[in-house]
Design a protein around this nucleic acid. Structure first.
Lengths: 153, 153
DNA sequence: TAATAAAGTTAGGTATGCCTAATAATATTA
DNA sequence: TAATATTATTAGGCATACCTAACTTTATTA
């Protein structure tokens, strides 16, 4: 099994690979806000569990297993962000929350959220669902804020 | 600050208090699927942090601070369950997922979900939003299953 | 009330994951 | 190429949270 932390590292590695074409321990550390020794430790662990290939002082490459998992995590993340935006969470918060939530959503819930997002996107223009919801949020003064921290729970 | 674990224990205590009128370490252990020594440790911690009042071999009582937090956690949980059910997650999965998700949702997202749930419940009968969504799910064969584990991510 | 059972605590150990300080390897550049 | 700077690793420790085994306290009941 993978821990939430292993998933975070895998996702970070995936994103770095995507963005820079290669992955350095130092960059992982920066991205996750963690010390380099922590990264070293996790790299060993991910390597021992065959999610990545690694040799000391060498480069990091996904195994098939690791790639598959990283891709799933990434998809989960993207889906969550999409969903959160639909219900009115702003981009930045959506990104942050997705990172935290993505470890805990069950496959059943993932499926439901996926269906929900699709359903909304497939609604005919005439339904104006999104517009109505946005209207509703606006009326309640909840749109276009960067934070609602002080709102009632 | 509270850890995710402290929150879980506080919620368990809240629920037991609610259901039985009193709280025994043994019941907490059972509810959380954890050993009695683990409960002892956490009780000490919660007590040291003034969430509960406790004396060795005695009863457990919330402080004002603890009660406030426990109530918030509980509300968060209820909201998440409500929301998950709206998007088609079955009761049991909704309960389980809510337990895991409730620690990570930001206040802003909580607010949005709350608005969403309210918005849906306030829709006029004529909109038949829920029915349409259920219809959609049914067509895709996703309703009334106990699990969708094998569905695509 | 004395023996037994149930509940709670302490002691000691495991695993994850983080940190700083010190060391080793690789890269850079003088 | 030799000195320096960068990057990565190991060593040693801290905090959380869990466990089992042994012990203590409280409750039950014979």
């Amino acid at each position: 099994m993978t821990t939430r932390n292993m998933e975070d590292y895998l996702e970070a590695i995936w994103n770095l690979q995507d963005k820079k074409g290669y992955v350095k321990a130092k960059d992982i550390a920066e991205r996750l806000g963690v010390s380099r020794p922590s990264v070293s430790g996790m790299i060993r662990k991910l390597s021992e569990n065959s999610y990545i290939l690694y040799e000391k002082y060498g480069g990091i490459v996904f195994t098939a297993k690791g790639k598959k998992l990283a891709r799933e995590i990434k998809k989960r993340h993207t889906l969550l962000v999409e969903f959160l935006k639909i219900v009115g969470v702003d981009e930045q918060n959506a990104q942050q929350d997705a990172c935290k939530l993505e470890h805990d959503v069950s496959p059943e819930t993932i499926t439901c959220l996926l269906e929900f997002v699709e359903f909304i996107s497939l609604l005919p223009e005439s339904s104006r669902w999104k517009e109505n919801f946005q209207e509703y949020l606006k009326k309640r003064g909840l749109l276009g804020r960067s934070s609602n921290k002080n709102k009632k729970l």
